[in-house]
Every structure is written in C-alpha cells, then in structure tokens.
Design a protein around this nucleic acid. Sequence first.
DNA 1: CATGTTCGCGAGTGC
DNA 2: GCACTCGCGAACAT
Length: 577
Amino acid sequence: MTGRGRPRKSPDTKCAESKTRPEEMKRVSQPGCPEKDFTEERQNGTTKEQKPKERKKANHTEEKPSVQSTGKDKTTKPFTEAPVQGTKAKTYTGRAKTTEQPAEGITKTQPAIPKDTTKDSLKTTKVKTRGVKAKSPVAEVTTNTHPPTPKETTKASIKTKKAKTCTDKANSPEEFTEKTTKRQPATPKDTMKACVPQDSCDDKAAVDSLLRTTLELIKIKRNERADAAEVVNKIINQIIVHLKKKTLCFKEVEEPLRTGSYYENLKISNPDEFDVMLPIPVDRVNIEPFGEDGAFYSVALKRGNSPLKTFQETTTLSASKMLKEFRGEVKKSVKEFKEWEVIKKKKGCPAVTLTTTLQSITISLDVVLCLVVKSSWPAFTREGLKIEDWLGRKVKQEHKRKPYYLVPKYEGRGTVEKDGVLAKDIWRVSFSHIEKAILKNHGSQKTCCEKGGERCCRKECLKLLKYLLNLLKEEDSSFDKFCSYHAKTTFLHACCTRTKDTDWRASSLSHCFHLLLKDFVARLKHGVLHNFFIPTQNLLSGPARTRCNNLARRITEEHDKGFPIFKRHQTKNKLGN
DNA sequence: CATGTTCGCGAGTGC
DNA sequence: GCACTCGCGAACAT
C-alpha cells in the first residue's frame, strides 16, 4: 500500500525541480551561522489522464461550458477548451463553474512577488466533480473573493477593528511567551526587542486569536484549488505531450516535478502560482563553479550522444541556447490554448511563465527547464542540509542519494564572462525536490501531524511569515527583493535549531511564530541568510543593507504592536467582499 | 470533533 | 516501459 507514512524510506528518484529561487541571491559566504537545512524533494506525477468523470456540479451550478467569459482583464482569453492534448485528453465535460465571481476587485496583482509554489500535476484532468463549488450563488459571491491579496497600500486608513494596539509595550519583558524559550543555539542573536505584543495579559490571547483567524483567511479554498488545478494540469499535460512527441531535444523529459508552495501545501491566499520543473536527464556531466558561492556552474556534457549536444558550444552546455529552444517549444505547445499567454522572458529567469485568468484571478504557471544529475551533489553542499538533529542522519543520507537539478539561471548581466564562459550560459543548482520532501515530512517524530501523532505548527508559522512578508512588500516597494524563499530558508534553519516536535506545539502558535520572526529579523539585521543547501551562498547579499534593516524594523514593529497589518487585512477582507 | 470531499502522489497491475 | 487504477494522506468543508 502506499505508505505514506514514513517516507523516509527510499529515495525517490524522481524529483527535480527548479523553482525559481529567490531572486537574486548573491554570494557571500560566511558559513558561520548556524543554520540548518532541509531539503525537499518532489516527485513527479504521473501523467495520466483521467477520464472524464464528470464533475457534477452541485446544485445549481450552471455549467458553463468551457468558456468562461469572465475574462478578466488580463488575458482574457476565454477558455475554450482547447484541444486537449492528444492522447487521452479527456474531454472534460465542462465544468461548470459557478460563474459568477464578480470581479471583485482584487485581482491579484502580484508583480513582484517571487514565485513560490506553483506546481501542478499533469495528470490530466480528471474531471473532477467538484460538486462543491456550486454553492449557492449568494454564497459564492462572498466566498470568492480572494481576500488576501490586498493590493494597495494598506497603510493606515483602514479601520482597524478594535485594535488593541497597546501602545506601550513597554514592559514586556522578553517575550511574552517566554515560557519556552527553546534553545536556539545558533540563532542569531539579535532579537527583536520587546518581543511580543505587549502587555496586557490578554494580548497574548488576542494575538493568538488574530493569527488563527489570519490563517483561516489565507487558506486556499477548495473549489478555487480544484478549478486552478484543473486548468493547470491540463496545460502541463499538453506541454509534456508536445515535448515528447514533437521535439528531439526534449523528448526525454521525465515526470514533471511539481515544486513550490502550492505543492508543498504552503500556498497562501490564492492558488495562483504553480511551479513545474521539467527534467531532462543527462548522463554524465562535468560541472565547474562559476563565481564563488557554489550556487552557479558551467556544465559540460561528457561523451555520448545526447540530443543536447546541439547546445554544447566548445566545452559547455549553453543554458541560454537551450532555454531559448525550450521556450519556443513551450510556446508551440500552448498555441492552441488561447486562454494561456506566454509572458515575456525575464532576464536570468529559468522559467517560461504562462498565465491565464480564472474567475478574475490570474494564475501563473512557471515551467522550468532543468537537467537532472544523478550523481553526487556538488562539494559546496557538503556543509549544508544540516538536518541530522531534526530529521535524522538517515533521512539526510536518503536525500543526498537523490539526484540534484540544474536550472538555466544566472544573476546580473548575461554578458559577464568568467573563464571563458558567459553568465547567461550558466546553471544554478536546485534542490526543490528535497525542500518539498522535507516540508511534507517535517517532524522529528515520524508521526508528527499524522493520524496517530501530534499536530505541530511549523507550516502555520511559515505561512504566517510568508503572508506578513507579502503584505509588507505590498505596502513598500523597496522590499521587492525579498521573497518567500527567504522566509522558507529562514524557516528551515529554524527547524534545525528548534528540532523537536514539542518545540512547535500547535497550541504554541504565537510563541513559535514569535521565535521565527525573531530569527528572521536577526538575519536581516546581519544581512546574512545562508542557502540551506549551499551555506556559502548568502541569500541576502542582494538587497542592500538598508533595506534589510528597514524590513527588520517593519517586522519588529508589526510584532510589537500586535500585527495591525493582519487586522487591517482582515477587516478589509470582510468589507471588501 | 467526526465525517465527507478532492487533489496529489506513490505503488501496483495489466498490457 | 508505458498507461491506468487504486488507495491513502493532507487540507478543506460540513
């Protein structure tokens, strides 16, 4: 049977992924920090298509046949059903979604946000019957709103509900929650100052309540998830079928690795970002570090006749050429799917981003070309992934036996040359599959969060941190260099510091979140956040120190005042829709 | 808090 | 080697 459980069993081979990482991470090194690491892995999905089962719609749902006219601004392409992918494509009888969806205002804009999750599976669509969605129109209206993304500046105005901001936090001794201060060895030392909301005794309860209602707010709605998964899986399937049947260079593509927050169950607010890595196997490669942080490499194919030889220039495999060809094939494969638009290429970005609009929400799908390397990880990873104390030595070994991935990504100007190699032709290592595996199996005890085990609040803490970061980014564009990968990396290090499941009791949410924020703030103040897998790479070498300090200050402020930003957005959400 | 749904995903099976 | 089915867990929903 499936064993879900202890996964810690065999390594899976698939996996690969490439998500985009933080935007630019630069290098710096300082191995000093204590960090922990974790890895994740992803697996591939099977492609299968499902047959149309019909999704029934619930009560009155009217079906709308394919078209959804709701177009929204963005791409408006109606979703006509495009031809399904060849084979089995299911025909998918229409899913009638409930149409309505007023446009609610918020279309999520999320320009700068780094992507995170997004992945989807290609299975094709089974038609899902998502009966649910149809709920009564009325209800729908309200529910649909996508709350979360607040776009605008929220700043002030909003009526905060009673906000009890205690202004004087004055005395809060250290953290309120202090009780358990767990050990945090390596943790950065600086802490937020007063930690925690202040004083009033009830504050703690109030904060706890606020955090929980916030979590409710940012959770992905089941029907939205179903709708998004359906369109995303369909297009991914289409792309893979095309690559396998119509191309030479990419026909060996393996199962897609669905990575990123959506597939890690960490996506917040809307199911609008999917990351899928398409792994191309390479037999043997020689990799040479490009730069000093150990994250980027030039890649050379060894003997053999791989179809990828076409992209090999003198001695190295040209990432830019290969990506260009890949992009062209992706474009061809989605040509018939008028509802999807291929976004213009962004410099140094390894993804071909496709977007579509579903019920006024823009869904973006990052399709990332990657090479799967089934040999030992680069030497720069030696000091990384320090999960022994958290997940165990054995788990670590299993992860390190899995392949690693290389994605066509560079930083800065593509024309910079080092040792005869242009920056645009280098590759960055990716361990998204390990990140995913770790997040899915994040307990020190095998039973953490499982049926017989105790629930922890690790994921909740990370979701809150991501949400807080998103909100702060929305109100201050100078924070656009910070992304969810910074939050995730900080979280992984935190897990390696506070290793026990009892350090993350579900009932201690506010305290655990407090400690996580403290960690994040300390790293921002130091300007050092090591890549979890490659400690020599500093993910904060990009953003200027001032910005790091400003963000640290804003976070501390929110924390000390009891997260007024969360309150504002809750209120807004309530009225808004 | 228990029960029900659906997606994601691994594993098993048949061809 | 596939393509497909089956069953379970996570997370949402009632």
